[in-house]
Design a protein around this nucleic acid. Structure first.
Length: 461
DNA sequence: CTAGGGTTAG
């Protein structure tokens, strides 16, 4: 008698092994599908189901990966802590999640912790950690990772890792090293080149960025939207409007403005920085979608040229188009108001952010507002604003107030601001210097010297 | 198959 062989259904197609007894779902495939689609809600239901069936032990790694990819880092971490997960992918996924969230120290901690547990990092793990190094400017750590990568020969067949390495050196302001690494990479592509170009732009070396752009093309690697964005920024820094126009034409001929929201803003910024506001405005008008960044580039351009009234008009126009201002836009507008001495108007824009748009002003906006009041000599208004702030535990706030106190020679408010500044950051060199200046300007040389002594004692610069 | 690299306005 022949046994009945049940048909096997590939798990990747449905996720259910329907032929097997009791229809046990293939949870691993289902979780992976949630990871792919970033479907957190479905992932949570699967977790629940798996828990009820007592299957968590064998699925914890996949769940950590899913939660991490969905940016549910606390859930991922608590599973990782509770189960003895040996899966390098799960650890790496959580490390990547922390790096995405800007929690690079947590990423480093996990990286150490996984190795203590005997789990070896692989190329993907190293790429994540390199990104964390770049974000924090942790050059020494980055070098150690580089050494390890070389020992293991991981660059031979991995273009991504090479790009991450170039980016790390570039972000740490070691551009010669970044260039050297790129030159000897076995594999390099438009992204590794763009990482280097972006680095030169970030650190103010626009000429070098231009020259890399040429070298890249000599290697027959074509620029993409990101490369163009970097190069346009370099053009703006150099005031190289002819080169900028040429890049603009290339972008148009490749129709890149249609599906890249970033490029439009950079283009407006390039023309604005080169002083051609008419052209900047023209480009903005023709963009398929105008966002706050593109508008802000134009507004800043007008402000830069001393055309504050025009800048404020554009700000109104932006809002009429239904685009809410964000923190950066508002800082820029408040700066314009400060230039024009339009205190009330600036304060109205500030309150609009909460009242009209329901947005919580970021700390930089509060600092701009303190600056606006302070420069105008309304120190008591600046102080009142600080007292009403949800949190004034930031150096920028106290520096703005101190700068105003220096301008108006207010020793008592100045001393108060200085004491708070030092509470926040004992090494806030700018605060010491501002306070010493305030005392010195008032003829209180002994007090000024006292502040200077404090600065040296606290090793502040 | 489940984890990884470059970009924008002050």
């Amino acid at each position: 008698m022949q046994a009945i062989i049940e048909p096997s259904i590939p798990s990747r197609t449905h996720g259910f092994k329907e032929g097997t007894r009791g229809k046990v779902p293939d949870f691993l495939s289902l979780i992976r599908a949630c990871t792919r689609n970033r479907d957190l809600q479905r992932g949570i239901r699967l977790h629940d189901d798996i828990l009820k069936r007592g299957l968590l032990g064998s699925h914890a790694g996949a769940l950590v990966t899913m939660y991490a990819k969905c940016d549910a880092l606390l859930k991922a971490k608590s599973l990782l802590d509770r189960y003895d997960i040996k899966d390098v992918i799960a650890w790496t996924a959580l490390i990547a999640g922390y790096v995405r969230a800007g929690q690079c120290e947590d990423a480093f901690y996990l990286f150490e912790h996984m190795q203590q547990k005997g789990i070896s990092p692989n190329a993907v793990t190293y790429a994540c950690i390199l990104k964390a190094c770049g974000t924090l400017g942790a050059l020494e750590m980055g070098k150690q990772i580089h050494d390890e990568i070389m020992k293991q020969g991981l660059l031979q067949n991995d273009v991504v890792l090479g790009g991450a390495l170039v980016d790390m050196y570039a972000k740490c302001n070691t551009l010669a090293k970044a260039r050297e690494v790129l030159d000897i990479l076995p594999l390099r592509d438009v992204i590794s080149w763009s990482a280097l170009i972006a680095g030169y732009v970030q650190w103010g070396q626009a000429e070098e960025a231009m020259s890399c752009f040429e070298s890249m093309q000599k290697e027959n690697i074509s620029p993409n939207a990101v490369t163009y964005a970097c190069i346009l920024k370099a053009c703006g820094m150099l005031g190289a409007i002819d080169k900028g126009k040429q890049i603009h034409e290339e972008i148009e001929s490749q129709d890149l403005l249609q599906d890249d929201i970033v490029l439009g803003g950079v283009l407006v910024d390039m023309y604005a920085k080169c002083g051609d506001l008419t052209k900047a405005h023209c480009v903005l008008d023709e963009l398929p979608s105008r966002n706050a960044v593109a508008w802000c580039a134009l507004i800043a351009g007008y402000a830069q040229q001393g055309q504050g009234e025009e800048a404020l008009k554009r700000f109104e126009q932006m809002q009429q188009e239904g685009i809410p201002p964000n923190g950066v836009t508002l800082c820029c507008v408040l700066h314009v108001c400060s230039q024009l001495g339009r205190i009330e108007e600036g304060h109205n824009y500030f309150t609009d952010m909460g009242v009209k748009y329901g947005l919580k002003p970021p700390i930089e906006v509060y600092a701009s507002m303190v600056d606006l009041f302070g420069r105008a000599g309304h120190l008591e208004k600046a102080v009142r604003l600080i007292r009403e702030m949800p949190c004034c535990n930031h150096s920028v706030i106290w520096r703005a107030l101190l700068a105003a106190c220096r301008k108006w020679g207010d020793i008592s408010v100045g001393r108060w601001a200085f004491d708070r500044a030092i509470e926040v950051d004992k090494k806030d060199g700018a605060a010491y210097i501002l306070m010493a200046n305030i005392y010195a300007a008032a003829g209180l040389q002994e007090s000024a010297k006292g502040i200077e002594t404090m600065r040296v004692e606290n090793n502040a610069w």
